[in-house]
């Protein structure tokens, strides 16, 4: 049970933000590299996984590396990061998000729409909420979407910069439609999380979160468990 998956780290990422800012679209771009012009409001895609590979150089040359991570710390073939991505399922609409959603999230991507002024206010509300409820280690990334609609922009990056520097958050601008910056967003998150873990553990078995977790879909005799208990 105690087997660690070496050279692989698994992280949980959650998305938050007002309806229609493009949360699901950003995930869809990252996971499937596609985009729907007429996407239904999410009742829920709910749960997706995607892996990303980081080369040794990606990590060493990152601005987050304060030289405490050296070339010996990392394997030559780099590190594979697996993301477990949780999209909102509509429970947030009436302020009924379950604690399970935030809990243990390694990163939270808070999305606003650069053409919708009030979507930024909503984003700020979610940041407050996360700071109150979630683990203090959760990395928060404020992300402006719909960069392709730059002509209709209502929110300037300077305003956002000012806000994020006060709260010490990351910020990004992306377009799920054109794909601009989307992979970079996830890659940066991956690098940040890997470096953070390397610093705290100094080994590659980053999350011990899964160390003694049993995978219910993988029973030892590989038979389906469909016979119910006789009692």
């Amino acid at each position: 049970m105690n087997r660690q998956r070496s050279k692989q780290s698994q992280f949980k990422i959650v998305l938050l933000g007002e309806s229609a800012v493009g949360k699901s679209s950003v995930v869809q771009r990252f996971v499937k590299n596609s985009f729907d012009e007429y996407r239904e409001s999410t009742i829920g895609a709910a749960f997706l996984t995607q892996s990303i590979h980081l080369s040794k150089n990606d990590i060493l040359s990152s601005g987050d590396n304060d030289n405490s991570i050296t070339t010996d710390t990392i394997d030559d073939d780099g590190i594979t990061v697996k993301f477990e991505i949780w999209d909102t399922a509509g429970q947030e609409r009436y302020r009924s998000l379950a604690s399970m959603y935030y809990r243990n999230a390694n990163a939270a991507i808070i999305v606003y729409d650069i053409t919708q002024l009030e979507s930024l206010d909503k984003a700020k509300y979610w940041i407050k909420e996360l700071q109150r409820q979630a683990n203090k280690d959760t990395i928060i990334i404020l992300t402006g979407n719909k960069l392709d609609l730059n002509d209709e922009r209502k929110i300037s990056i300077d305003d956002v910069n000012e806000f994020t520097s006060i709260y010490n958050l990351l910020n990004f601008e992306v377009s799920a439609k054109t794909g601009e910056n989307v992979n970079q967003l996830f890659k940066d998150i991956a690098i940040k999380l890997v470096i953070k873990n390397l610093k705290s553990n100094n080994n590659l078995n980053t999350t011990n979160k899964h160390s003694n977790t049993i995978n219910l879909n993988q029973n030892t005799n590989n038979t389906t468990n469909d016979q119910n208990c006789a009692c």
Binding site: I43, G44, A46, G90, Q91, Y94, Y101
Partner: peptide
């Protein structure tokens, strides 16, 4: 915890949630 899991599944299928 398991309740929350099923509620999330229900929300994915369209159940509307309102606490309080």
């Amino acid at each position: 915890e398991i309740s929350q899991g099923f509620c999330r599944s229900a929300a994915v299928a369209g159940t509307i949630y309102k606490l309080n």
